[in-house]
């Protein structure tokens, strides 16, 4: 077993996972919750194909793609922060963490621009089934981004290696979920 896993011996099967076992419980739970929401989205798309085709056509897939790249780059910065901290390079780790936060904030700015554009076109949460699910799923995810940014700030301040690993693991989970949301909501069109 890798040395990173030895600290979690009392967690049973979860002790075989790297980092804090609690974060893996959260990752599995969130994957299931968002997974079910996206299955619901696809099922509604099957039941109301015209509404969903119109709704998806109204989305800007390039903004969605840009946001995907922001979160991916943010995740890379967070991973580099942990790597720097594991080598006792605290300042460097904070800089990488700052980069992760900056790209995460850029994601939220793009998301707000996108939502305000849709709202100005009259596409609010009650407009139709597509926009109800669009706002619920992307809004719930954005709430995780906000929480993740707060966590990054906290672990940047109290910057033990364990804190950094746990905080950035939450951030990678947010990234992971978006990588499934993006193709389902923005790109899966035309069927």
């Amino acid at each position: 077993m890798n040395a990173k896993l030895k600290d979690n011996a009392e967690w049973g099967a979860l002790s075989a996972l790297p980092g804090n076992p609690m974060i893996w419980i959260l990752i599995i739970s969130e994957l299931v919750v968002f997974g079910l929401a996206l299955i619901g989205f696809m099922a509604m798309r099957f039941l109301k194909p015209e509404i969903f085709a119109t709704g998806q056509a109204a989305l800007d897939y390039w903004l969605g793609g840009l946001n995907t790249m922001f979160l991916i780059t943010s995740g890379w910065c967070a991973a580099r922060a942990v790597h720097a901290r594991s080598r006792d390079q605290r300042q460097k780790a904070r800089l990488w963490l700052g980069g992760a936060g900056m790209f995460g904030a850029a994601f939220l700015v793009v998301k707000l621009v996108e939502w305000s554009e849709k709202l100005s076109q009259g596409h609010d949460i009650a407009f139709d089934a597509f926009f109800t699910l669009f706002y619920l799923i992307t809004g719930f995810h954005a709430a995780h981004v906000v929480m993740g940014l707060a966590i990054l700030a906290i672990v940047g301040w109290w910057d033990s290696l364990e804190n950094l690993k746990t905080g950035t693991a939450f951030w990678h989970m947010v990234d992971l979920i978006w990588l499934i949301i993006f193709p389902v909501i923005y790109l899966a069109r035309g069927l």
């Binding site: 077993m1 890798n2 990173k4 896993l5 099967a13 075989a16 996972l17 790297p18 980092g19 990752i27 995740g75 890379w76 967070a78 991973a79 950035t168 693991a169 990678h172 990234d175 992971l176 990588l179």
Partner: peptide
């Protein structure tokens, strides 16, 4: 993301 950013590659084969 799981393997490289979350280091799942270091976990057991079962996980």
């Amino acid at each position: 993301v799981l393997d490289h950013f979350l280091d799942l590659r270091e976990a057991r084969a079962g996980w």
